[in-house]
Amino acid sequence: MSSHQPLDSDTVLWSADAGDRAGRPLLVLLHGYGSDERDLFGLVPHLPEEFVIAAVRAPLAPPFPTPGYSWYAIDGLESRDPVHVTASAHRLLAWTDAVAGRLGEGPGATHPAVGLLGFSQGGAVSLQAMRLDPHRFAFAVNLSGYATPGALPRDAELAEVRPPVFWGRGTHDDVIPPFLVEHTTEWLPRHVELSGRVYPGLTHSVSEQELADVRVFLEKRLADVGSAAD
C-alpha cells in the first residue's frame, strides 16, 4: 500500500454506478496540463463499454492564468526534476489502492485488471506509475506523452513483465520537446510490448483515426483479461 496521499476521489467521473463496477476491468483516464477530469471523459462513447471508466483529476493547480489542473509543473528549472512526475504517479497508485483493492480473480478482488489512458502529462504519469509498480497495471495508452528520463529501481522488473503499451503521437506536435520523443522512442521498446502509430499532420491532440486505433488496442486487452480468467 502506498503512503502517499491519493487523488481526490470526490472529483472522479465514472462511467458506471458503484453497484455496476465490481468484476469489470477498470480503465483510468489521466488528462493533460491545464485540463480536468471532464476532458478525457468525453472519449467514453468511443471506448469499449466492457470497461468501467474513471476519469481522475490531477492534484495541482498551474500558475495563473492557466486554467484547470496539472500533474507536475512545466515552468522553471525545478520542473525538469523527474521526482515531480514520480510524486504524482505515487498519488495515482495510492488512489488505485483505495478504489481497486486487490486485483485479479477471487474473493476481495474489485477489478480483474486495471489499465491507464493518459494524454500528454497524463501519459507521462501513466508510464511512471507502471515503472513504480510493474505488476499493478495490465496496460497503458500514452497519447501525445512520453517516458520520463532517469532510472527507477524497478525498471528492470518492468522490462521482464513487458506490459502492452500503445503510444500515439502526431508529426506536427510542437509541445513535447524532440529530446523527449527521442528518449521515449528508445526507452519504450526496451521495457514494454510496444504498439502505436505516428499520425501525419496531427498536432498535440487526438484524431479520429487514433481513437479507432486505441479502441482496437483496448479490445485486445479485453481479450487478454478474458483469456487470463479462463
Rank of each mutant, 00 (worst) to 15 (best):
A100Y: 01
R169D: 00
H84P: 00
A16M: 08
W167Y: 05
R215H: 12
S88A: 11
R57G: 05
G168P: 07
A228K: 14
A22W: 00
D36T: 09
H46E: 14
F217C: 09
V206K: 11
A113W: 14
V56C: 08
A89E: 10
P177I: 02
H183D: 01
W71M: 05
L127E: 07
P6S: 13
S9M: 06
H46S: 14
L132F: 08
S2A: 13
V125Q: 03
R24A: 00
L180S: 11
L93E: 10
D213G: 02
V216K: 15
F41D: 00
I176G: 10
V165H: 08
V216T: 15
L103I: 11
A109R: 14
D155L: 06
R136T: 05
D39R: 05
A22G: 11
P153W: 09
P6H: 13
A138F: 03
E37T: 02
D17L: 04
G104K: 13
L188Y: 11
P25F: 01
A223C: 10
D213L: 01
H46V: 04
G101V: 05
V28S: 01
P134I: 08
L43R: 10
G101E: 00
D36I: 06
S2M: 02
L60R: 02
W71H: 07
S79K: 12
H172A: 15
P200C: 02
E157K: 06
G42V: 04
F137V: 00
G122A: 06
L143Q: 07
A87F: 01
V206Y: 12
F137G: 01
L152K: 12
V44I: 10
T203D: 14
W167S: 02
V44M: 06
P6Y: 13
A55C: 10
A140H: 01
V141L: 12
I74T: 13
S227R: 15
V225Q: 07
P82R: 01
E186A: 15
G226F: 06
R162A: 01
A124G: 09
D39Q: 08
D17K: 10
F64L: 10
A87S: 10
L43W: 13
A113D: 14
L77V: 15
G104S: 13
L188D: 10
T171R: 14
A223M: 12
L152Q: 15
D39T: 03
R80K: 12
V225Y: 04
A61R: 15
L47W: 11
G101S: 08
A159C: 02
G115L: 02
G106V: 11
L211I: 12
P25G: 02
V114N: 06
W167N: 06
E160N: 07
L30R: 08
L93I: 12
T96Y: 04
R38A: 13
A113R: 15
R221F: 01
T203L: 15
R190Y: 06
T171F: 13
S35I: 11
P59Y: 12
P112Q: 11
P112R: 13
L30A: 04
A58G: 10
G196L: 03
P65D: 07
D20H: 12
D173W: 07
V161D: 00
G108C: 12
V52N: 08
D8V: 13
G76Y: 07
A223G: 03
P153V: 03
M1K: 14
V28T: 08
V198L: 15
